[in-house]
Design a protein around this nucleic acid. Structure first.
Length: 636
RNA sequence: GCCGACGUAGCUCAGCGGUAGAGCAGCGGUUUCGUAAACCGCAGGUCGCGGGUUCAAUUCCCGCCGUCGGCUCCA
């Protein structure tokens, strides 16, 4: 066998991964929960015999892969505990997931949050017993019959879905008291699960299909050690504190009202951020050769029939009647832009024609899926469409990738994941057109050295796309920008331009957005920054505070100088104590606070304090204004 | 849409069959103070909306609206 570090080991015939680990060392043997053979995606069980020369990566309990194994085992232990409390429960599936694990069960009795501690206690018993996880190969057809007889329809269905010639395995623990259909692997014994917590209950459809029965899902998480579990729970607490819905209310950025479900009202401070973001994008557009347009809100249904939205996107659209004509509120700007393109005879000299639009979009989202600013029914994208000749695609995509990177870096989103999504089941256009579109995106990504993952079948109905996902300060993933190729709309709207040889050619459309939706981006930014917006975005940049009433005249002079310089500033000349004023400014996430007292009045200076609590000392007005002007300019 | 939980003052929450309470915010005073909460007072609620049970409903039941957690990361 070859190990990860290149070392080679010999094993006696019939030797397993477990034997290999113990051969290397007693401690490693005890910490090992599985192995990866020849770099396979799947982790093999400890009991897997190593029949021929191969490369083995041992998976220890404290590694990311080991965590997955521990969580999977925790799911089995939870299922055992649930069955001991409610023997009538039927088990569906119970996998390990990124943040922990869950088990879907079918039980007539409704579980309540109060049941979670009971289940945890029952799990502790199973863990304390520290019995071995045993793997056994079973006869598929026999077990299907047995499962059917027990009324275990979910397991029966799962086994029926397994290829007839594949090995079917069960895992047992508790000296055979609990067994479950499972591919494994599992930790050697229940005692390996040292730190877990059950978190919440939820409904989940069998196989995620709403036509199926709704099961009860119990979510939990497990870690290698108590310390890691505590850290995870602390991170979760931090995420709750940064929840943009909570901060949005506390900081007076936006509000929601039942009169317009899933539709935010941006308050003055939120609107400031909103407009500042748009302004930034407009600056980039100026540099990148985009022209902004303003297009209608409501269109005759015929437009949507022609664009294909009526057929493919109707369920997400709002309809209305105008003079007995069926009309729809726009869910996207693209069809409007085709109208603009088609309104004139276009020359190849005009291409690539880049059109930007901050139009308001409305999409009907099902009541259960909306959330704060991140999933709303009305929003605005930093939307744009590029009409290009096919030979211009790669250069356009390249420019876009640079633009995307620049924007994300500005906001401190330093980790970028890129996905290429290909043709979905429900789609329009010919195979050849799709193939051509997907290939041009691959070429552009490759030419720019961008690493990406292919999401097969995840494209838009009109074309393949590149999606950009960033990691925020709490390491959570958010999808932001997208670049989508569209060979379909130009066809449907019969768009063309006159080429240099006088012939009529069909342009390609590139749909692109970098922030995605402004609403959603603000929500993400609130959570990313915890409400501490960079100076150039902060709705309130500076607050001037007096220590006593006598300091107000100079404070007013300072305030008016700031205002004239275009700094967004406010004042606190109330009779509160200085400590209270500082506290208020902190809670409001002010980037800077100015304190003016007797000394400053005499010297005609200000005492400057920077968030979170950096003393910037005292300075005169010219230095202060220079500092703010530079921060605003550099967007630092 | 579906499953579950929740909806009480602007916010955070208590009360849960006998008709509503606190803290913060607000307003009015007093205090003039040097970097995370001065003090006193006042005001503020169709207890989400509608129906039912009851002598009596914020409280129990039903419906609706809204919010929150979820609704394949497949044995």
């Amino acid at each position: 066998m070859t190990l990860r570090d290149g070392a080679r080991k010999e094993l006696p015939p019939g030797g397993t991964i477990r034997d290999l680990a113990f051969q290397i060392g007693e401690r490693l043997g005890r910490a090992t929960v599985g192995g990866r053979i020849d770099g396979a995606a799947e982790i093999s069980d400890l009991r897997t015999p190593l029949l021929q020369d191969c490369r083995v990566d041992l998976i220890t309990a404290d590694s990311p892969d080991g965590l997955h194994v521990i969580r999977h085992s925790a799911a089995h232990i939870m299922a055992d505990a649930i069955l001991s409390l409610w023997p009538a429960a039927k088990l569906a599936i119970g996998p390990a997931i990124d943040e922990g694990f869950y088990y879907d069960i079918d039980l007539d009795q409704r579980l309540t949050p109060e049941d979670l501690p009971r289940i945890e206690a029952a799990m502790q018993k199973v863990i304390a017993a520290d019995t071995a996880f045993e793997r056994c190969t079973v006869d598929r057809s026999v077990e299907i019959v047995r499962a059917r007889e027990r009324g275990d329809i979910y397991k029966a269905e799962l086994m029926e879905g397994i290829a007839a010639d594949a090995e079917v395995t069960f895992y047992r623990h508790g000296a055979g008291a609990f067994e479950d259909l499972c591919r494994g692997p599992h930790v050697p014994s229940t005692g390996y699960v040292k730190a877990f917590r059950l978190q919440r209950l939820a409904g989940a459809y069998w196989r995620g299909d709403e036509k199926n029965r709704m099961l009860q899902r119990v979510y939990g998480t497990a870690f290698y050690s108590k310390k890691e579990l505590e850290e995870h729970l602390a991170r979760h607490e931090e995420a709750l504190k940064r929840d943009h819905r909570k901060l949005g209310r506390e900081l007076g950025l936006f509000l929601m009202d039942p009169v317009a479900p899933a539709s935010p009202f941006f308050l003055p401070k939120g609107a400031l951020i909103y407009n500042r973001l748009q302004q930034h994008m407009r600056e980039l557009y100026r540099e990148s050769g985009y022209q902004e347009v303003i297009t209608p809100q409501i269109f005759d249904a015929s437009l949507w029939h022609r664009s294909g939205h009526y057929e493919h996107y109707k369920d997400n659209m709002f309809f209305t009647k105008v003079d007995e004509h069926e009309c729809a509120v726009k869910p996207m700007n693209c069809p409007a832009h085709t109208i603009i393109f088609a309104a004139e005879k276009r020359s190849y000299r005009e291409l690539p024609l880049r059109i930007a639009d901050f139009g308001r979009l409305h999409r009907y989202e099902r009541s259960g899926v909306t959330s704060g600013l991140t999933r709303v029914r009305t929003f605005c994208q930093d939307d744009g469409h590029i009409f290009a000749a096919s030979e211009q695609i790669q250069a356009e995509i390249t420019a876009l990738i640079a633009m995307v990177r620049g924007v994300y870096t500005l906001f401190g989103f330093n980790t970028l994941k890129v996905f290429l999504s290909t043709r979905p089941k429900e789609s329009v256009g010919s195979d050849a057109v799709w193939e051509q579109a997907e290939q041009s995106l691959r070429d552009a990504l490759g030419a720019n050295g961008v690493e990406y993952v292919v999401n097969a079948g995840d494209g838009a109905f009109y074309g393949p796309k590149i999606d950009f996902i960033v990691l925020d300060a709490l390491k959570r993933e958010w999808q932001l920008g997208t670049i989508q190729l569209d060979f379909n709309l130009p066809e449907r709207f019969d768009l063309n331009y006159v080429a240099s040889d006088g012939s009529l050619r069909r342009p390609v459309m590139i749909h692109r957005a970098i922030l995605g939706s402004i609403e959603r981006f603000i929500g993400i930014l609130i959570e990313h920054t915890g409400g501490n917006f960079p100076f150039w975005l902060a709705p309130e940049q500076v607050r001037v505070c007096t220590i006593a009433d006598t300091h107000e005249p100079w404070a007013r002079e300072v305030l008016s100088a700031l205002m004239q310089a275009g700094v967004r500033c406010s004042s606190d000349f109330t009779n509160s104590k200085t400590g209270a004023k500082i506290r208020d400014a902190r809670l409001a996430r002010l980037p800077f606070t100015i304190v003016v007292g007797g000394r400053e009045c005499e010297e005609r200076t200000v005492a400057l304090r920077e968030r979170p609590d950096v003393d910037r000392g005292t300075m005169g007005l010219p230095a202060l204004l220079a500092l703010f002007t530079e921060l605003e300019r550099s967007k630092a």
